[in-house]
Structure formats: structure tokens, C-alpha cells
Nucleic acid binder design. Structure first.
Lengths: 117, 117
DNA sequence: TCGTGTGTAAAGTGAGACCTAAACAGATGA
DNA sequence: TCATCTGTTTAGGTCTCACTTTACACACGA
């Protein structure tokens, strides 16, 4: 995992406690055992599967894409998009890589314009 | 796998044979056993790991991104880019999704302009 | 002190990914 | 006919991922 980035487990524990949700309660909502969630929250186990990460995101009210990134996963719908247009999307992503958040937003707007109209 | 798409194994077998490369020879270059490659080429085994797919791409002279897509994988450098800017890149990819190849190319050019210069 | 709540430790499981060695079968050419 | 190519079959191996079960230890209130 990258340095400087908060770990997945530590993050969700903090957010869970901030919302005063019990570990067992959360585990039940996600559909895993409390033991497992405990280990995950202390980063002793790797983050769970995409669907579980998504339901955690919903519970702690954070962006699913962001949480998936923390979990080291690429959202499966994005993976599908890349697989459908590998050459174009790879090129787009690699050139977009250098840009900052603002420039990226502008680029996304242009994409929307090209599509929507 | 998607309908209409040629399977990974069938594709690399065709390309290998077109270049008159023996199975054992190719297996050796990639660094796997002939047995394994045989199974992969007949789609009895799932495609190999990213590094092996990349060396196959080099041998049969095709675009690595495209071959990785056939293998059902997202190139790891793209995965990293998404992980570094999950929100922006997710938005960009999802809006870019509707566009055709030409519009995508134009978008990539704009990205390049925003960056380069 | 009983029960009920919290989180945790230790060990194990099932499935799938990724791969191998050994043996074999058919064509080709000497 | 014998060696030597070609790819294939059989029969596994080993690893990692994504979890579970069972049992435990502590704290709180009644």
C-alpha cells in the first residue's frame, strides 16, 4: 500500500465509530462475520470484495469509487469500459494522468458536451 | 466473456501459427510449460498473468492493451491511475463511455494539449 | 454474580487462479 | 523402422483470496 494514504481498515473503523455503529451490527448489514470485519478494520485481512466494499460505502456514507480505490480495487463497471475500448481508454487515461483535479473536471465536461448535446 | 468477441486463446493461437512459431518455442519465450500454453490456447485454462500476456503481445506483435482486454485484465498502470484519482477518473471514464472512437481520440488530444505545452 | 454487550485470537475451509511433469499420439523425413 | 518433430492428455500441485466457526476476555448494568 502507498505511503501517506490512510489504510482501508483504519478508515472504515473511524467512520463506523463516528456513526456509533457496532461492529456486529455493521458486519450483519454487510453480510460477513464480526470476526472477519474486526480483522479487516485492523488491516490484518485484505479488504473484502467489491459488493461488500460498496455496501460499506453506503453505510458510512462515502464515495464508493473512493472507498474502492482505498481497497485497491478498480470498480468493475470501469474495468468493463476499458475492456470494451482498450486502446482509446488506455490512451485517454494515460494522458489524463498528469492533469490536476481541475483540469480533469474540465475534460470530463468536454466529454459530456460531446456526448449529450 | 462477451458474445461476438474472439476468445483469447483462439486469437493467440491463430497469430502464433500465422508467424510459424512452434508452441514449445513460444512457451519457452514466455516462460511457461508447453502443456499450459496448449490449454490456454484452447481456452481450457484462463489467460495467464499480466506479464505473460504482455510478452505474448510482443511476440505476436499486437497491442498489449488490447490483448490484456481480451484476457479480461485491466493493465496495472491504468489501475494505479484510477486508484490515485478515483473520483475524477471514474467520472471521466463513465462520461467518455458513450463516445465513439473518433470522439474519444479528440478528447485524448484535448487532454494532451491541457498537459503538454 | 449473572447476563449481555463490546471486540479479538486462533485455526481452518472452499474455490479458483495459475501452473507443472510425465507420458502419449500423430506426422515427417532419413 | 527409428528418431524427431508437432501438439495433447492425464493427473496432479501449490498458492492466494475471501471468508467462517469456535472460543475467549473484558466492561457494564441490574
Amino acid at each position: 500500500m502507498k505511503a501517506g494514504t490512510e489504510k482501508f481498515g483504519a478508515f472504515i473503523r473511524r467512520e463506523r465509530e463516528a456513526r456509533e455503529i457496532g461492529l456486529r451490527e455493521m458486519a450483519k448489514k454487510i453480510g460477513v462475520s464480526p470476526t472477519y470485519l474486526s480483522k479487516v478494520e485492523r488491516d490484518e485481512f485484505t479488504p473484502p470484495t467489491e459488493d461488500k466494499v460498496r455496501s460499506i460505502a453506503q453505510i458510512i456514507e462515502c464515495d464508493p469509487d473512493e472507498l474502492l480505490a482505498m481497497a485497491g480495487r478498480v470498480p468493475s463497471d470501469l474495468a468493463d469500459i476499458i475492456k470494451r475500448h482498450p486502446v482509446e481508454m488506455s490512451a485517454l487515461l494515460r494522458t489524463a494522468n498528469g492533469l490536476d483535479a481541475e483540469e480533469l473536471a474540465r475534460l470530463a465536461r468536454q466529454a459530456r458536451k460531446a456526448k449529450g448535446e
